[in-house]
């Protein structure tokens, strides 16, 4: 059995994203140095929406990069089939840029650690700021987000599911508690 609770619906997600776009502008003076990097898969969709919002709100053209963190994971080892690698596409230098790193759910922090290692191979950013749609806690590494769409207190047994219409049927964030059996 699965009990599912809706945390964000379509308009909720839109509101949260627009608030975070304003926060990005408010926090950074050097708007010209901003770049967005989305972590595959849903981080990319979120980054694309933020890119459109920044254009709409402030007329900014913020470059967008796509990062696949597979090659930087800390759980690659013998005895596990290496996951399918998708393309990374960051076609600009990150030297001296303010990178807004975007992901859907922040949990253990291991994905973000891997992503930061990846970013460093594209140059030396002035700063990396972390933006997540959902922070569900339970960090295993010392990582803090700079922009949070929604705090969702959860237990490790909970499943947090982000759906986005680019890949799913609609926009939503749900939390479910999967019981055994």
């Amino acid at each position: 059995m699965e009990n599912s609770k809706l945390i964000l619906d379509e308009s909720g997600m839109a509101m949260v994203l627009s608030r975070m776009a304003y926060e990005i502008l408010e926090r950074n003076n050097a708007h010209g140095d901003l770049v967005l990097v989305g972590i595959r898969t849903r981080g990319v969709f979120l980054a694309q929406r933020l890119q459109a919002l920044l254009k709409q709100i402030a007329g900014l053209d913020v470059p967008l990069g796509i990062l696949d963190i597979t090659l930087y994971r800390d759980d690659l080892s013998h005895g596990t089939h290496h996951p399918v690698l998708e393309k990374t596409d960051i076609s600009f230098s990150l030297d001296d840029k303010i990178v807004i790193l975007v992901d859907d759910v922040l949990y253990t922090g291991r994905t973000v650690r891997a992503a930061m290692d990846g970013l460093m191979d594209f140059g030396r950013p002035r700063a990396i700021q972390l933006l997540v749609l959902v922070d569900r806690g339970h960090r295993e590494l010392p990582i803090m987000p700079d922009y949070v769409g929604k705090h969702v207190p959860s237990s490790p047994q909970h499943k947090v599911k982000v759906r986005m219409r680019e890949e799913d049927e609609h926009d939503s964030v749900t939390v479910s508690y999967a019981t055994q059996g």
Binding site: L71, Y72, L76, H82, D89, S93, D117, D121, F122
Partner: peptide, 12 residues
């Protein structure tokens, strides 16, 4: 893409 990066190496 890795061979076109400034740092052509990943830790995999």
């Amino acid at each position: 893409e890795i061979s076109r990066r400034p740092i052509k190496k990943v830790p995999t």
